[in-house]
Design a protein around this nucleic acid. Structure first.
Length: 212
DNA sequence: ACCCAGGGTCATA
DNA sequence: TATGACCATGGG
């Protein structure tokens, strides 16, 4: 079976089990980008608290984030953990974003060069960059996370020591570039990972993860 | 009392 | 290039 058939089969299983996921959970692309940084190695419920704090403080925009002192920004994003670190990362990102002319300044860049420029921002690694590219800029890049790696390992499709870039190309070379599909696929993988396995016959996990 | 969560950077060998 | 330490809150 080709990689394409395999990956489509997995997608169909996930899709059948969980339906549409409506990702990324955010009101604006800018909120997506901030959330992508805040959710690094952190549970989403904690990120939501931080995002809500930013909204209530009227701070979820470029201007406010730049003007806020490190201390005050750290206070607002405290629930998302690593607050000192993420304060610096948000500052780095938002300064870059403003310098580059925000969305209008960046939307004409092609996918790979925009990706390269995002990765130059201190605090933005491959997954955060791809979250931003896919869910904020609507570019057809496939997001790889620990859940994706784990699922492919469970299905014996990879050994687990592959690089991020190798896994991204695994998906992107097998599937036609399709923003809608990539958005939904990654969302479904995360949804599936959060679902608890009850070890019962009807367990959705066991259906999705059963041999191909 | 542990363990992990929608990662990334930096120092060290 | 390849490990390891570090960042930190909140829920199970």
């Amino acid at each position: 079976m080709s990689n394409r058939s395999i990956l489509l089969k997995i997608y169909r299983r996930l899709s059948k089990c969980y339906g549409l996921q409506h990702w990324w959970p955010a009101d604006t692309p800018f909120e997506v980008m901030v959330g992508a940084i805040l959710t690094q190695n952190t549970s989403w419920v904690n990120v939501e608290k931080a995002i809500n704090n930013l909204k209530e403080a009227n701070a979820l925009n470029v201007h406010a984030l730049i003007e806020l002192s490190d201390e005050n920004l750290a206070k607002l994003i405290r629930p998302s953990g690593y607050f000192n670190l993420k304060t610096k990362r948000l500052k780095h990102f938002v300064k870059w974003f403003k310098t580059e002319g925000r969305f209008n300044g960046l939307k004409s860049a092609d996918d790979e060069s925009l990706r390269k420029r995002l990765l130059e921002v201190n605090g933005i690694g491959p997954e955060t960059a791809d979250d931003i590219l896919l869910y904020a800029f609507e570019r057809p890049v496939f997001v790889i996370d620990t859940y994706t790696r784990r699922l492919l390992m469970t299905l014996n499709l990879i050994s687990g020591d592959e690089s991020y870039e190798t896994l991204r190309q695994f998906f992107q070379s097998a599937l036609k570039p399709d923003v809608g599909l990539f958005k939904e696929y990654h969302a479904l993988i995360v949804r599936h990972a959060k679902e608890k396995c009850t070890q019962q016959k009807s367990c959705l996990h066991c259906k999705v993860e059963s041999p191909l």
